[in-house]
Amino acid sequence: MDRPVAPPGWPREVRPPDTPDWERTAAAWLLDLCPPDYRRYDGLRRHVVVLARFAVLHVESAQAACRRGLSEARGDLGQVAELSVVEAAVQTFLLEEARLLGVRRSVGLVEDALRGRRYVARL
Rank of each mutant, 00 (worst) to 15 (best):
S106N: 06
D21L: 12
G9I: 03
S71F: 11
A88G: 13
L123F: 14
V107A: 00
E72Q: 14
P20R: 09
V50I: 11
A113W: 03
V85P: 02
V103G: 01
E111I: 04
R104G: 05
P36D: 08
G43C: 04
E87N: 09
G43K: 05
A121S: 14
A6F: 03
Y119K: 01
R12V: 12
V85C: 12
Q79S: 11
L114G: 00
D112P: 04
W22E: 03
D2R: 14
R105L: 15
R39N: 06
L101Y: 14
T92I: 04
R24W: 08
R53Y: 07
G9Q: 00
S71L: 12
A52P: 01
P11L: 04
C66K: 02
P7K: 07
A52L: 07
V110L: 04
E72K: 11
V107L: 03
G116Q: 03
L57N: 15
D37R: 14
A26T: 01
R46C: 10
A73H: 07
V14N: 02
R53N: 09
R115W: 05
L51I: 06
V5K: 00
R104C: 08
L70N: 01
W22I: 02
A73K: 04
H58V: 09
V120R: 14
A113S: 08
P7N: 09
V120W: 13
E82V: 11
V90K: 03
L83H: 13
V90T: 05
R45A: 07
E96A: 09
R40G: 08
Y119A: 03
A81D: 00
V86I: 09
G9V: 04
L57W: 13
P11N: 08
A65L: 15
F54I: 10
P17Y: 00
P11F: 01
Q63Y: 02
A64E: 15
R46V: 06
D2E: 15
E111A: 15
R24Y: 08
R99Q: 10
D21S: 12
F93N: 02
P17H: 01
G78C: 06
R118W: 08
S61K: 12
Q63F: 03
S61F: 09
L51P: 02
S61W: 11
V56A: 05
Q79P: 00
A52W: 01
W29C: 05
V107M: 02
R74S: 10
G116A: 04
R15T: 09
W10I: 05
D37T: 13
E60P: 02
P4K: 09
P35N: 06
V85L: 13
L123K: 14
D18P: 00
T92G: 10
R45K: 13
W10K: 03
A52I: 02
S84H: 13
V50R: 09
Q79R: 14
A65V: 07
D32M: 10
L44E: 01
R115Q: 15
T19Y: 07
Q79N: 11
T19R: 12
P35Y: 07
A64Q: 15
